[in-house]
């Protein structure tokens, strides 16, 4: 049984796996951070948010000395599942750590939403 957890993430409860909601491909164990099952790419934020003014610092874009974008892609279909804006080298965010056992109990009891 698959449960949709976010816009791009499903959990296969029987196999306890994170899966891509778009292509159905497996990512990694649902007891691990799903980001370990993604492809990661570090991006200079100014590639997306190009400076609006010509000031070198205060230009309505992100300063790459302060922050970079990390994009997380599905390794099967390439959809961008999530991104993070972090100072260079800062540890990533394990943003969703579901209680898998509780989730299985909930669906076994048939009280899922």
């Amino acid at each position: 049984m698959r449960v949709r957890i976010t816009e791009y993430l499903d959990i296969d409860l029987e196999r306890e796996l994170w899966c891509c909601n778009r292509c159905g491909g497996d990512l990694i164990s649902a007891r691990e951070p799903y980001k370990r099952g993604c492809l990661l790419y570090e991006r200079n934020p100014r590639e997306i948010h190009q400076p609006i003014s010509d000031h070198p610092v205060f230009n309505y874009s992100f300063d790459p000395d302060w922050v970079r974008i990390i994009e997380f892609y599905c390794p099967h279909c390439g959809v961008m599942m999530e991104n993070e804006y972090l100072p260079p080298g800062h540890p990533l965010t394990n943003d969703i750590q579901p209680d898998i056992d509780a989730l299985k109990r909930k669906h076994a009891n048939g009280d899922a939403s």
Binding site: T6, E7, Y8, I48, H49, I52, V57, F58, Y60, S61, F62, D63, W66, V67, I69, E71, F72, V79, M80, M81, E82, N83, Y85
Partner: peptide, 16 residues
């Protein structure tokens, strides 16, 4: 130079 306007599920952020 950074932002407090985050995006969600892969959406890009509101700029500084």
């Amino acid at each position: 130079v950074i932002s407090h306007n985050p995006g969600l599920f892969g959406g890009y952020w509101g700029p500084p």
